[in-house]
Design a protein around this nucleic acid. Structure first.
Length: 268
DNA sequence: ATACCATGAACAG
DNA sequence: TGTTCCTGGTATC
């Protein structure tokens, strides 16, 4: 289940497998009728922006995929790809003499192909993505600093900054002792700049490990080299008690989503 | 077997 | 602000 780190990791992994190769593109489920428009084309490159994934095709058109809450890719590296499992919206298969690869996409919120302008329209409504080299931190900082909306809402708003989801918002606000309902205007620019850095580092770690782990290993009482269980991997998200002060974690609604925080470490 | 919930976001009004 | 669309894991009967 995807926040921005998942999309950037997918772009990277799929680039290794598919970039520069001619692909067969189909829609076993039938709902992605535009598959025919890029069927047989070469996938020039993949691009991640926030939680959006773009396929740059040799036809000049650009594919757009958004996984939403449920979307998933499945990679098959066998010569004979298996029968599509469930409702496969898009299937791409390498159509050359290289390593066999088939990738299935199921359950996405968005899956389309269009002219570059369509991609530009989507990107234009996204705030800076901490995982991108071209991101402007100042823009994100000012987007937050001038808004009276709650920080918990601002971090989920993809036009403020892009790629952050419900887990990273809770974790980053905890690290900086910011209550999810604190208005953006009540944060200092320095605080917001540090928050950006924390989010960038958390997202980078997420790309590296392909999962969300925000705690550092030495904050846990675990044997060296042991895998961190999901419930132990966060400071406040879905925790019963704060990892740092053992106060019971509070769950409140912010921007229509459950936001976890520590009432002691994040008083205001 | 069924209900509910979730790391998302568009749309209606 | 509420409704709708995706899917799958876990909880509850």
């Amino acid at each position: 289940m995807p926040e921005g780190h998942t999309i950037h990791r997918i772009a990277r992994d799929h680039r290794t497998l598919l970039a520069g190769r001619a692909l067969r593109v189909s829609s076993p489920q039938g709902r992605f009728t535009d598959a025919v428009r890029v069927d047989g084309a070469t996938l020039v490159d993949l691009e991640a922006y926030g939680k959006h994934l773009f396929h740059h095709w040799s036809t000049g058109e650009i594919g757009h995929i958004h996984l939403g809450l449920f979307g998933k890719f499945r990679v098959h590296r066998t010569a004979e790809p298996p029968e599509p499992r469930g409702a496969v919206r898009m299937r791409v298969t390498a159509d050359d003499d290289g390593e066999p690869v088939t990738i299935d996409l199921a359950g996405p919120t968005a899956c389309s192909v269009g002219p570059p302008h369509d991609r530009d329209v989507i990107v234009a409504r996204l705030g800076p993505d901490p995982l991108r080299a071209d991101a402007d931190p100042d823009l994100a900082v000012h987007n937050m600093a001038r808004s009276r909306r709650a920080m918990g809402a601002l971090l989920l708003d993809q036009s403020v900054l892009s790629g952050v989801g419900n887990v990273y918002r809770a974790e980053a606000l905890f690290v900086h002792g910011i209550h999810p309902r604190r208005p953006g205007t009540a944060c200092s620019e320095h605080e917001l700049r540090m928050l950006w850095t924390t989010l960038r580092d958390m997202l980078r770690a997420g790309v590296r490990s392909n999962r969300i782990v925000t705690v550092t290993r030495d904050e846990l009482d675990l044997p060296r080299g042991a895998r961190i269980p999901r419930r132990e991997a966060t400071y406040v998200y879905k925790r019963d008690r704060c990892l740092r002060c053992a106060t019971p974690i509070a769950a409140i609604e912010v921007a229509n989503r459950t936001c976890y925080h520590c009432p002691t470490c994040q008083p205001t």
